[in-house]
Design a protein around this nucleic acid. Structure first.
Lengths: 338, 338
DNA sequence: TATCGGAATGTTACCGCGATCAGTTGTGCC
DNA sequence: GGCACAACTGATCGCGGTAACATTCCGATA
């Protein structure tokens, strides 16, 4: 246990166990034929010394790095940890390992993070969204490794993609709202020009409304702060400005929940007087006094499918690289299902 | 842009720009003297080829890896992403980079993840908790790199530690509750024998109650599912079983919020008839109809302090390695402040 | 008994880059 | 004009492993 600052190498184990470095390497990787006797000797020595193999050297020599770069905009969004869960679950059965990079929704940071990750020569990349800087796309293209763009399928992927159509999600929600007879519809969302998926939902949403000659009567955007509190505040503001609103579409469940709590407190009839809907289908909603209407974004499944594609491609197995999942609307208690 | 499967090396850039590999290396790392002219030549060539340096080789050659292993139990807990935020913020100003590993609260998985991470020879380790398997402790010890154990300070660290005393947090909350005159106190928490911090809070909590001759009148534990919904359910169950309860202490804010929503719905007077308190001070609470009493766990600050210690030690700057932060109680609207 | 084959082990040659040291210029100064 | 020195550039070696090939040793087979 007493050791210099320099960390141990195969040579140390080799000397301690009296066999060649190569044999030690074989034992530690379970590769090739090694007699049970020497295997034991080596393992004992390695354990005794507290040897931890150096993957840096191993990766360089073998030209194989079992890492999968996962690049997402945020960890605090609830959505992405779930996607990650799906990814990890699948990769756990392989020799691959996810490594996460966070972009904070900034294209330049994405570019930086991507560069950084590619410099470790991962076996694959899973990256959120279809919108990237030109340089990022070029890097992905040139990397020569499998790339899966996730979350969104409204656009052209560099390689593979797994997600839902957010335009369609917006359209379907709009259709359901109109069908339920609501007419004075407001939209509350995040002030994030760079959140392309929220934008696409909004576009799909207004598109369908427009076809029925309906226009959003009010809208408001926030940034930062507690989403629940913001939902509450914005809802209050909208009601004040546009008292005749009969439906509010929130760009995510969290602000939707805030709005719901506010309206219930005010004694407003939901969904009679005002209907509500959010987006994502987060688990959190199950604990609310009333179920918020929402649309499932298939988060976990996106993760598993993406990881499966990477795992297959790494092993040179071809696999369908364009997966569009179908989000399902859930009416809950805040949107009349007619 | 047309390239074989083999990815580019310094040699490619060197040939394309007509200088030695060494010079290319210097340009790309901004080290040593290089004339402006050759610098430009090299940078142009590198960009044109789409060259991305190979950190694997670089790290091996330089014996330096600018990664900091961050090992935490979970990403879905809300708490850890915030700690991570603190870490990232500090490391962003250095050349270090965090790499996250998740243990799911399982000691064996922690051991595995730690081994995995150490095999990449990071410059430092930030790891949640003070409880590890013997093998894990040995690895940390033997690694010869700075180690900071975070979140908790009730115990002996391998090296440095940053956190709060959860025993004390439990004690303080108990004292505040008693002082407010509550007598029939229930405890609701997670069924996680491996969540040592929750356990310590509970121990501190009961310890102070015991000193006043008070015992927890009821308790319940959950696992899995939506925390908000579970808080609701468990609160209902407790009220049914022990209708005379006058205070409920929740092991986290999320279930506390569920309980709060339930009680308000039932028209129960909070904090008159029943007082409530949670733990963590999550941002979410700000959007609730009433502020839940809670105790701030100093999450972000834990992250920044830990990262600062690593950053300092990596540069051979000594720095105080035992930081105990003081969590502050916030009474909110659900605990009488007397 | 000579030969062969496979299991067990060792040897050699890199992997792509950076540390180190060794040139090769150009410049200012006496 | 010669020298010292800085500015710049290149050659060599090795980081700690692994792939590929070479070797040894043994029993089985003809």
């Amino acid at each position: 246990m007493t050791q210099k600052n320099r960390s141990l190498t195969l040579r140390d184990v080799s000397e301690a166990s009296g066999v060649s470095e190569m044999t030690v390497s074989r034992v530690l990787r379970n590769r090739g034929d090694v007699s049970a006797a020497t295997r034991d000797k080596v393992l004992t020595a390695a354990k005794e010394l507290g040897y931890v193999p150096n993957k840096i050297a191993g990766a360089l020599a073998s030209q194989r790095v079992n890492l999968v770069a996962v690049i997402i905009p945020s960890l605090s969004n609830m959505v992405f940890p779930e996607v990650l869960g799906g990814i990890s679950q699948v990769l756990e059965d392989t020799e691959l390992q996810p490594v996460v990079g966070v972009t904070d929704y900034l294209p330049e940071k994405e570019e930086k993070v991507l560069y950084e990750m590619l410099s470790w020569r991962p076996s694959g990349v899973i990256i959120a969204g279809l919108e990237h800087t030109e340089a990022s796309r070029a890097m992905l293209q040139a990397s020569g490794i499998p790339v899966v763009e996730i979350m969104d399928t409204d656009g052209d992927p560099v390689d593979a993609m797994v997600g839902i159509s957010h335009r369609r999600a917006g359209r379907e929600m709009a259709a359901a709202i109109l069908k339920a007879g609501y007419k004075k519809i407001a939209f509350l969302g995040t002030k994030m020009p760079l959140d392309h998926r929220a934008r696409k939902r909004f576009e799909g949403f207004t598109e369908v409304l427009a076809k029925s000659g309906v226009e959003v009567v009010d809208r408001e955007f926030y940034s930062g702060g507690s989403a629940l509190a913001k939902g509450r505040e914005m809802t209050e503001a909208v009601l004040e400005r546009s008292p005749d609103v009969d439906f509010i579409y929130y760009s995510n469940d969290m602000i939707g929940a805030g709005g719901l709590l506010y309206l219930l407190e005010k004694g407003i009839d939901v969904p009679g007087q005002i209907g509500l809907a959010g987006f994502n289908g987060v688990e959190l909603l199950q604990g609310l006094p009333r179920q918020l209407a929402t649309m499932d974004a298939c988060r976990r499944e996106i993760g598993t499918k993406a990881a499966e594609i990477i795992a297959a491609r790494v092993n040179d197995v071809e696999k369908d690289g364009q997966v569009t999942l179908a989000p399902t609307i859930s009416f809950g208690d805040t949107l009349r299902d007619v």
